[in-house]
Design a protein around this nucleic acid. Structure first.
Lengths: 375, 375
DNA sequence: TGATAAAACTTGTACGCACATATTTACAAG
DNA sequence: CTTGTAAATATGTGCGTACAAGTTTTATCA
């Protein structure tokens, strides 16, 4: 396009400029109805067709929108120009047991509204997360649903989130949330309460030496650990760092397994293990079994997420339900709400209540349980 | 803007689409001069004003530019649209046990090349597939990887694939392929051979009455069935339609289960069941167990896809390996190749060799096996 | 032959009219 | 009070004309 007619006194250009001025200056505000084409035609003493040309330009530029039969209205400037109908979803893992159902929930809500999903994954690396965001900033997207990578660690690319704010691209965190951005809209589980509930459950079964295996680099791990500690303290059980294992994304396959196998060598050091999630729980079970211990006869084990994963030999984990699809739906709806109404109104954050799912991986343990560890 | 006038035959819209088509298809190339407004007006038998409206829209969209006094020209921009770095992936199911790893394979290849994935899912409905394609045609994408919905049934929206060809948007089929488009690039498993292999394996174990449960509405089901028939014929076993069950997407949860339970009432009617996939195999196993039959002691059961799904009570399915990640990678690489080199060179189709995965769901059956069906 | 003016194109601006179609309002009938 | 209908009003489509203002081609003259 050229439209370098800034100096000339073309009628359609003048009226266009005039109306634009009124919109930008605030004389005509978002949602206000403009005078009808005939009124403008009279007012400016020009033909309706010329008025239409001016209005068409403003509409193209996103300043106004017309509704057939109703009139022409001032649009919410930035908001209405976002019509790519693309939403980006940034996840940590693709083949994770959580992801498919979460994205299915997101998809079902967004597809119904005519949106398309752009998928990105970070493999839980902050570098790749930054790269994803940079790529997305180049693209035409209306909003982002993001599962932060290593949400526990200080976020080094705040500037990118700042840019999202500047560009007025709304975003919703799921699963976790950087501490620096904890005021931003997010949908996550009450992991602290979940950790508390499942630990309390073990205590109620008579366990006294409850080990814990937690992921160190995301918020979920921190919160589940916090709940674990709360439950112990409430029951007057001393927190024993000797039987708490922290691991990072990179060594999730080996570290918990090896630590637990090492711990299992000391008889009676634990009578239960609270695990970060079901996946970790299976690693722990593998380690315990190789050490000759039986689940749950010798050691009770709990998971988190209710993955219903390949459970070897009829063992069903006692775990915390993860409303995967629901979480996706809620995040999508929150995002739609943000896109429609802006960041103004009300409470944006959703905290999902955890729910205990009973399996057969835990057992009632009486006072003298410690004797029958390793028969 | 709305411009949702896709269906109507508005004159300015038609001529606009017509010209756009010519530009995108390459009939009008970058730099070419378009017919003058008066010529178009004569040619299409409409007024010059209406032609101007159509041209204005194309100019707004960046397809053409006008030079005062000289004419209207096709802009270079068309070529640039092929650099959106967006690839669409259209799948049937999101939470399917195959999908996550396939898309992970796709993602790993495409992300490395700087592409982003746009995700669409059809829930195996052809209507939704058509809708997805229509939406994608509106968007800025460089290529598509598509798992066709109900690939066995005649494809009713060939026109959309034709449009992809016109717009020169390359696409690769995975998992299945419409018979009308079987010459198009695709990456799929040799399902016929897979069905043949697994049936032959059962025959080699001494089975004589091998039932089959197949999905009727996709190519995979047809091909696995074809292999099943081939193996039977090769072994001189008569094909018995009484013990072959066909089901559709919609009743995948109930139909196989009920048919097998009905069949199981007749003692000795079958000594093995070849199933469309692992998911179906589990439904079949559930039905057989409820009829009082033991797997594999009374009836051997095979799956397909090697899903390693929640296997009840230590049962591991004998199945066919599904190289999910590899399949995704191959499809992505094939698509990249198409985008770089066009459709010209060499063999585009990839047929993955099936591989037998032995579990404990099948057993050697001696000649007089039929006695011990139902003890 | 070569410069120049005129003619014949091109797109751009501006206005007019008629009718289609969607929405709101007013009013009357039940 | 509800419902149906008609009128008024809004934008949307489509056509026609006239003239303005650039660019290219053609005809003309020195």
């Amino acid at each position: 396009m050229k439209e370098s007619n800034s100096g000339k006194q073309l009628k359609y250009f003048q009226i266009m400029e005039d109306l634009k001025e009124q919109i930008v200056s605030g004389k005509i505000q978002a949602g206000d109805k403009l005078p009808s084409e005939n009124e403008l035609s009279k007012e400016y003493q020009i033909s309706r067709q010329t008025v239409r040309k001016a209005l068409a330009m403003l509409q193209n530029a996103g300043y106004i929108y017309a509704e057939h039969g109703r009139g022409t209205f001032c649009s919410e400037l930035v908001r209405h120009t976002r019509t790519s109908k693309n939403i980006a979803v940034v996840t940590t893992y693709l083949s994770d047991y959580i992801f498919p159902r979460v994205i299915q929930g997101i998809d079902s809500v967004l597809t119904a509204e005519g949106y398309s999903i752009m998928l990105k994954n970070t493999r839980n690396s902050r570098g790749r997360e930054a790269q994803c965001l940079e790529e997305l900033l180049q693209k035409d997207i209306d909003g982002i649903i993001i599962e932060p990578s290593k949400s526990q660690i200080f976020c080094k690319h705040m500037n990118l989130y700042q840019k999202l704010d500047d560009y007025q691209i709304p975003y919703v965190f799921i699963q976790g949330c950087f501490s620096q951005l904890k005021d931003k809209p997010h949908v996550l589980m009450d992991d602290c309460k979940g950790g508390y509930m499942i630990t309390k459950y073990l205590i109620s079964l008579g366990h006294k030496k409850i080990a814990g295996v937690f992921k160190a680099d995301d918020m979920q791990g921190q919160n589940r650990h916090k709940g674990y500690v709360m439950a112990l303290q409430e029951a007057g059980i001393l927190y024993d760092p000797e039987i708490v294992v922290w691991y990072h994304t990179e060594d999730r396959k080996i570290h918990p397994y090896e630590c637990i196998r090492e711990m299992a060598k000391k008889p009676g050091i634990m009578d239960a293990v609270v695990c970060y999630n079901d996946q970790t729980a299976f690693e722990v079970i593998r380690a315990l079994r190789e050490a000759g211990l039986k689940i749950p006869e010798n050691v009770s084990v709990t998971g988190y997420d209710n993955s219903r994963m390949p459970n070897t030999e009829g063992l069903h984990l006692t775990t915390i339900a993860h409303p995967q699809e629901k979480l996706g739906e809620m995040a999508a709806e929150l995002l739609l709400d943000l896109m429609r109404n802006g960041e103004t109104d009300g409470e944006k954050n959703v905290l999902i209540e955890p729910e205990l799912v009973l399996g057969n991986s835990c057992i009632q343990r009486d006072a003298e349980c410690n004797k029958n560890v390793k028969e």
